[in-house]
Design a protein around this nucleic acid. Sequence first.
DNA 1: CCCGATACCGAATCTTTTTTCGGTTATTGC
DNA 2: GCAATAACCGAAAAAAGATTCGGTATCGGG
Lengths: 129, 129
Amino acid sequence: MYTKKIEEDLNCGVRVAMKVFGGKWKCCILDAISQGISRPADISRVITDASPRVIEMHLAELLFFCAVEKDTDEVYPKRSEYRLTALGRTILPVIAHLEEWGQTNMEFVKDRQAVLDERMVIGMHAEMD
Amino acid sequence: MYTKKIEEDLNCGVRVAMKVFGGKWKCCILDAISQGISRPADISRVITDASPRVIEMHLAELLFFCAVEKDTDEVYPKRSEYRLTALGRTILPVIAHLEEWGQTNMEFVKDRQAVLDERMVIGMHAEMD
DNA sequence: CCCGATACCGAATCTTTTTTCGGTTATTGC
DNA sequence: GCAATAACCGAAAAAAGATTCGGTATCGGG
C-alpha cells in the first residue's frame, strides 16, 4: 500500500467508497470473486489485462478493508481462496449501478473518446467542441 | 486532457462511468452544479480543497462528455454558467448510491485507515492483520 | 492607472497508481 | 534434477493524474 503525502479526506462518502473499491481493477476482481473465481491464479487468467502483481496488491487492500476474506492452504503448492465478506457483498449492487450506467452510455462515451484520440494524432487543433 | 500511453478498454461499464465522472473532484462538482452553484468561481469557493485549475480541467472534461453544458457571457467580466445536461442528471443517482455506501461504511473505513496511518508512522512492522 | 474580479490556458512539478521484473518457498510431474 | 505451478513480496520504472504558478483577456472601482 502507498503512503500518502497529501492528507485525504474521508468525510465524503464517495471518497470512502473509492478508497475501498476504486482501484483500476478492484471492481473486476470483486465481480470475479462473486462469480466463484476465488484463486489469484484464476482471477489473473480471467482479467488478462491486469498484471498478476496488481491483482495481488488489490486483493491485499480488499482484504485489509474486509471486503474479502482469505483462506489459505499453507502446504505447497499454496492455494488461497478469496471469498466476499458481508461487507463485500454490499458493494455488488453499487458496482452493478456503475456498470449499468456505463453500459447504457458506452457507445456515446466511446464516440467522444474517439474524437479525442483523433485529435491527439492530428495534433490538437480545433476547439473542444 | 491527458494523452494516454496505455490503450484503455472502454468495453467495461465501470470504466466508462469512471472515465466520465471518476476524477478526484468530479462528483463534488456535479453535486454542486445540481444544487445550482453554476459558476466556476462559486464552485471553487464551495470546493475549497480543490485548486481552481483542477476544477477548470474537470469542467472541461464534463463538458466534453456532455455531462454539463456551458453558457458564457462573452462580455467582460466573463461569466459562465454550467448546468447539468440530461445525461448529467442520470449520473446523480449513481453518485447518490456511492455516497450512501460510503456514508454507511465511513466509520469502519476510517478506523481501518487509522490502523494503516499508524503503521506508517511507527515503521511498518507487523502483518496486514 | 493600477488592482481586483472573472474565465481560462500552458507548462513544470509533484503525487499517486500501475506495471514490470526479479526474487522467495515448496510441491508435483517429467 | 529441472521445469512448472502456486502465492506473494520488494523495488524500480513508467504512466496517470493533480497541483502550483504564471500567463492571457477585459471590465469596473478606487
